[in-house]
Write a protein that binds this DNA or RNA. Structure first.
Lengths: 141, 141
DNA sequence: GTGAACCCCGTAGTCACTACAGGGTCAAGC
DNA sequence: GCTTGACCCTGTAGTGACTACGGGGTTCAC
């Protein structure tokens, strides 16, 4: 009934490379699929959907463990979505802080790029980065 | 004359943990400092400044190798403008691409965060991730 | 003079992949 | 029916940027 894919076909269909799919299986993010007689993995449309969900989550910067949580939430639609919401909220705050920092960096870099001088003007780069320790809500690395 | 720090003091002063400082030294990002008689690293204010620069750069998502380049750029304000300019220009383009990526993420995330539902059934996070290929201008992982 | 807090070095672990070695399978073309 | 090449398998090791740990030496306040 439902179409079957090899790992390579699944990879092309979902934009995830086969090595990564096997890695997701090893780490328990994606269930081990049934195998063909010769031991090849055989995926169905549901696995493809799940994998696209994972990929999208990773693109948005969620960690593997966070995606596991999200998948559990998606699997239990009767549960409250508070947890999913707070994950997204925390992540949004992080993304916004990063954008703010990068915008500051862009400003400095574009000043440097526009700089006509042949001398110490470039020092602004190091000075600015050095001074801008003020308002960073970023977690320590 | 100029104050001296141990690696731990430098760490506290710059927000970088001592293990990371030693790692930066191993990888050539931070010069090996002079040592005390007993072999302890002794840093000066300039090293602290440099390390804060590195930390900010990392927070902004630059790779170690990129930061090496940025440090060279900052260290040689007298270098021919042509060369320095193109380095800065390349980094600016990179920063702008990164900003664009993060802005796309922010948009999706902030839509998700407005979720009003009390159950995962209608939770936008899960819906959005499920609807895969909608609006992603993001590069493949 | 002793105990805690620091420092040294080297190695191994983390995360999320990615690559590689050394083999087996499958389908198409000759 | 045989070869060729693209695919699949497993297991292990490498990547980047740290972080932790083990086993030892040093410093300093009490």
């Amino acid at each position: 009934m439902s179409a079957e894919f090899t790992i390579g076909e699944l990879g092309r269909a979902s934009g995830v490379n086969p090595e990564t799919i096997r890695y997701y299986e090893r780490t328990g993010l994606l269930a081990a699929p049934p195998r063909s007689q010769s031991g090849y993995r055989r995926y169905d449309a549901d696995a493809a959907k799940r994998l696209r969900f994972i990929r999208r989550g990773r693109e948005l910067g969620f960690a593997i463990e966070e995606i596991k949580t999200l998948l559990q939430l998606a699997d239990h639609p009767e549960a409250p979505c508070r947890e999913a919401d707070s994950l997204a909220r925390a992540h949004l705050a992080e993304v916004e802080a990063r954008i703010a920092d990068l915008c500051a960096m862009r400003e400095v870099l574009s000043q440097i790029v526009e700089c006509q001088s042949h001398t110490a003007e470039h020092c602004r780069l190091i000075e600015t980065l050095d001074q801008r320790s003020c308002c960073s809500p970023l977690p320590p690395l």
